[in-house]
Design a protein around this nucleic acid. Structure first.
Lengths: 276, 276
DNA sequence: CGGGGCCTTCCACTGAACGGAAGCCAAGAC
DNA sequence: GTCTTGGCTTCCGTTCAGTGGAAGGCCCCG
């Protein structure tokens, strides 16, 4: 820890990135002093670096003097593969699912030991829910998470199960044996169904998106993502949602493979770089 | 230009940010050498900095050796106000509009002299279109752009009109006088309607979101955003879309004002920081 | 086998980053 | 009115982290 903290703080780039990392969902806007404290930097240093980041619009400073993440950074982030490829491809199919159900539609990937939510559609009628685009939840307590965990390599699965697992509700399965059995079942069936394991009153159905979603399970074919839907638990038969989910997931997987070839996917219709 | 380039390259942070800025839609994946060339840095320097950025997962290096924008950066970007507030609030209303029309629904803000697209919903049935989330288009050639330009301060408007305007189609209005007249009309009516000015075959309708969207035009009330919809030009009567658009825009504006008060908006349900 | 990309590592030099300190400003207490 | 507090900004001498040329490794192709 000390060693890592050492390495982290040493380089200028590291310090700058620590400034960025000081922001999170609970702290989307920070005064210079808060920023310095959270990044563990001397005020003067934070001031200089934050100023520099601001001049690049990686940070923005509001009229209240607080710093916020800048829209330039947001723009940059959208170039990340998760967003630019996965999201782009999946969105129309997610739209279709939403139209058909008017429930929360989720697209998530595994990032380390977390479920990382890439996209989420919801309307006014959907169940309110804890997930958030860009947010993280445990792998073992959600539908999409279970699918991702079941599809991950044994390495990851072992590593994940070998640590204490949070238990958001009384229904969350955390006993190792039972969880492993469930995961095998998920892998076999090609879908996960979890009842109130993350939030009381909500049921979640999910399927993998990727090579493994055709039923055939290749040796090293971790799914690229998971597609899921969350409905109220009193809803008649969540299992009915599996076929449309699978259809959508397969379509997405196919399109992903197709677009994997062309590096610059079509319409480069950007604005010519207007002089300031 | 020379002066700015000078300042830009001097600081380490600047160099690191230049590396990030080397990525764009047309170049979402770069080899180290390309990266160095595009950022105008010596190879060794690019190598070191890129490595550091990678260790923070601000960049990721694929199996092909190319660098891409990292998902950590994507996550950070989602904390930007455009995304975390505006998008969150507007999305359900945009969903409703999509459901009702199945057409492209756009949410955009003005960023300098560009229309910056914050969100875009579209399904399979919608008109294919050039806009892209995080993308930029001219202010004078789209529905949302015109609304934003009409609502901007005279300073901005003058500045924008004082430069040569691109003309994507033969229908794009670029004559200053005519454009100014149109903008006044947009401001008065509270909505914009453009026919094939950006893309042949598409018509766009848009309304402002924000203080000015109640008809009353305060002195300094630039709209926070613009909400628009793009349909095929042969569609019966695009003007019919104005009332639902206005209703949605007002609802969004109201919710934006409401949530402006509470700094941390509710459910902080993040995962406890799992040890690596 | 030699040439040409592309990537990685090394290391001596140096100028850019550092951060303590001092000063500024506004709000609130007394 | 003055004093205190807290947040922000600027300054500047020291020093150490960043720099980048050069050399070497790897792979592919002719």
């Amino acid at each position: 820890m000390a060693a890592e903290a050492e390495r982290d703080g040493r380089s200028v780039t590291g310090r700058a990135l620590r400034l960025l990392a000081a922001f999170d969902v609970a702290h989307p806007a920070l005064t210079l002093t808060e920023l310095a404290r959270r990044a563990d930097l001397p005020l003067a240093t934070a001031h200089r670096l934050a100023g520099e980041l601001e001049s690049w619009r990686a940070l923005e400073r509001g009229s209240d003097g607080r710093f916020r993440v800048g829209s330039r950074l947001w723009e940059m982030g959208l170039l990340a593969p998760v967003s630019s490829r996965l999201r782009q491809v999946a969105l129309p199919y997610m739209q279709d699912l939403y139209e058909a159900t008017r429930e929360n539609i989720h697209l998530a990937v595994r990032d380390g030991f977390d479920t990382l939510y890439v996209e989420k559609l919801c309307g006014h009628r959907s169940v309110p829910i804890v997930s958030r685009v860009g947010g993280r939840l445990p792998l073992h307590a959600t539908g999409v998470g279970k699918v991702l965990l079941a599809g991950a390599g044994p390495q990851v699965r072992e590593g994940y199960l070998g640590r204490p697992l949070p238990r958001p509700t009384g229904f969350t399965v955390v006993e190792r044996g039972r969880l492993e059995r469930e995961l095998r079942q998920v892998a076999r069936r090609g879908h996960a169904l979890t009842r109130e394991e993350m939030t009381l009153g909500s049921v979640s159905v999910a399927v993998p998106v990727g090579p493994a979603c055709d039923g055939e399970e290749g040796p090293d074919t971790e799914p690229a993502a998971a597609l899921g839907i969350v409905v109220r638990s009193h809803r008649a038969d969540p299992a009915r949602l599996v076929p449309p989910l699978k259809a959508a997931a397969q379509a997405i997987a196919r399109r992903l493979e197709e677009t994997a070839r062309d590096p610059a996917p079509g319409l480069e219709h950007e604005l010519p770089p207007m002089p300031r």
